[in-house]
Design a binder for these strands. Sequence first.
DNA 1: AATGAATGAGTATTCATTCAT
DNA 2: GATGAATGAATACTCATTCAT
Lengths: 209, 209, 209, 209
Amino acid sequence: MNRHSYFHIFLGGDELVKKDKPKYKQIVDAAVIVIAENGYHQAQVSKIAKQAGVADGTIYLYFKNKEDILISVFQEKMGMFVEKLEHILTQEVSASEKLRLMIESHFGLLSGDLHLAIVTQLELRQSNHEIRMKINGVLREYLLQMDKILVKGMEDGEFDKDMDIRLARQMVFGTMDETITTWVMNDHKYDLVDLAPKVHRLLMKGMRA
Amino acid sequence: MNRHSYFHIFLGGDELVKKDKPKYKQIVDAAVIVIAENGYHQAQVSKIAKQAGVADGTIYLYFKNKEDILISVFQEKMGMFVEKLEHILTQEVSASEKLRLMIESHFGLLSGDLHLAIVTQLELRQSNHEIRMKINGVLREYLLQMDKILVKGMEDGEFDKDMDIRLARQMVFGTMDETITTWVMNDHKYDLVDLAPKVHRLLMKGMRA
Amino acid sequence: MNRHSYFHIFLGGDELVKKDKPKYKQIVDAAVIVIAENGYHQAQVSKIAKQAGVADGTIYLYFKNKEDILISVFQEKMGMFVEKLEHILTQEVSASEKLRLMIESHFGLLSGDLHLAIVTQLELRQSNHEIRMKINGVLREYLLQMDKILVKGMEDGEFDKDMDIRLARQMVFGTMDETITTWVMNDHKYDLVDLAPKVHRLLMKGMRA
Amino acid sequence: MNRHSYFHIFLGGDELVKKDKPKYKQIVDAAVIVIAENGYHQAQVSKIAKQAGVADGTIYLYFKNKEDILISVFQEKMGMFVEKLEHILTQEVSASEKLRLMIESHFGLLSGDLHLAIVTQLELRQSNHEIRMKINGVLREYLLQMDKILVKGMEDGEFDKDMDIRLARQMVFGTMDETITTWVMNDHKYDLVDLAPKVHRLLMKGMRA
DNA sequence: AATGAATGAGTATTCATTCAT
DNA sequence: GATGAATGAATACTCATTCAT
């Protein structure tokens, strides 16, 4: 039994097989570049195809439609964030330290891929309701992992036990998001990762027991 | 000399004269309703005209183009927020109390106009880069007033003197924004203003000296 | 009360008002010419608009979509056939004579508009299932009138009383249709109306009592 | 020398050799099924290949292009009709009886293959001008055989000697065609072959000397 | 000032056909 | 012979904006 048929059974196959092919990632990466450089509304399928070095029609061998490309971009890239976060969660450190690592990791990933930062913070937010809802679905996974840090911190007495977990999450994510968006809008003039410790300290003061 | 005539000098007369005419507000209000009820991408000029009870062409007697309508919506409505905030700044209370009043006022205004909340938190963010930059310009005035509270609090020793003012502002605004957006996305199931004290407490802990 | 509001009450208004405007007929006539000269599959909306002397977008002020244009072409033109047939039905002549007049009228109308003949006999039959079903609906009205001649002839003893009305109708319409299509495919080399008496005689022999 | 090798000389060998291979018929039969079940415009080459159990590219080893498949469908199937008709022509019976046998045979063949009936009466007529002209070429052979019955009948004094042979053929074929199409459109609710004697009688009355 | 009919630029997607393996 | 991944041309429709009335 080959690898393909193995996955076919557990994961539905078609989808995964396509994601494994080099052109799938090629197109996703092309989409990030085209959207970042041209803006969401000027990111035509033909432009993405050209950037990926494939024919327009080839796009549709790997994606159902344009919407599918955009959601896949977010899914593929968000995957990196979730992976890093999951790794942080396994470490034997305090909740505060995990929070610091998360902020640093999050800032670091976006600092290292300016195109991606523009796409996630500015451009993808211009998408229509339907796409945004699907993106939110992907984001939820990340926020659920984030919650684990907060809950652990509260249980261990590091964070305020009476804290409203939803508000705390909104403060953490809202602060990070606002910080990154401002950085992107200021054309990355300063170093984002340098801000991580300050952001961490600010948030910690807010949540400390 | 009132505030309007002050701006009159800098912004050009035509604009202002038109803003005083009844149809100007009529169209702006229609735009809020149409965008909230149909979504940003389904808010055609003809729909706004119909809602406002004027002909399509009439829109262009009051607005340069569609973009101008959208920016005007934000400008006109944001005006209310700035006015309230300016009033809070004149009060003889602590910076912490001013912060609380601001959050409460901000939440209150949006709670009282669900259409506006949908438009500012969800729909207007789907606009293109250019419009978003202009909206940010309008928002800046509000953030500058907000900064005054933070600076005053730091000077008075209520807030941490070593705080990075930009980060603090991002935490405050990011937390509020994220809280409101979550509330809108949850279809206003709970009372937003009720969350104000909790948000205030959370932010205060973060900034306290 | 003006003419428009009068019709509005009885006929649904919008539709009719548009059909009365000169551009409606202008576009329908342009469609016949474009389809006849370019073939069904090469009759793009932009070509029809150009032929009609209007902008592409104008088409959509008068027609819901391309399908609507095609059905309207058949409806408008078939209207002439039905009108003539209804007039024939009012005449005080034998069923046989009515049949002769119908064939002559049918052949005459198509002889007089070669574009239309090509469109109805060859091109419109290439349309998809949905359009064809709608066209058949329009055609049904014509066949119902035709049935009246056959029924009258049977009642009056001119036609065979034991005739299967459905088969008789299929023979009459099938023969006419096949005759016209052959004439169109032979590039109108001979005179179609000249064939009317012969076709009439042939059909009459088949149906005579 | 058989009929095939006769044509071999005039039509080129490649064609014929391929027609004898099993995959040729496999693809033709698949095309009939796919067109009947999906409609002409939804009968993509890839669907036909799938139904035939071959790869898309394989189609092009047996057919020049898609058009060639469609014409071949008609040719192959029409072959059965011509064969039956040729057999009828050899029989020692009256022209009227031959006509009856032809109608019965024609109705019978289509009754026995509903897919084929749908394809020839409805779907293939949606093909473009060029294909339709080629189909008519194939049909001509059938009509030429049919003419033989009419000519014989006229010579023998069974049919009206003054009959216009072309019109008579159009009546015969038009009536049969219209009858079959109506039967197909009515979802084969009644028995088509049962109608053969009635159709025969109707036509005979029309042509009788 | 107000109208609303007319304009026309711009784009996602399908599918017959090819050709390297 | 057989495959199937890759190609790329071709087209209906929307809607912001104009301008004659």
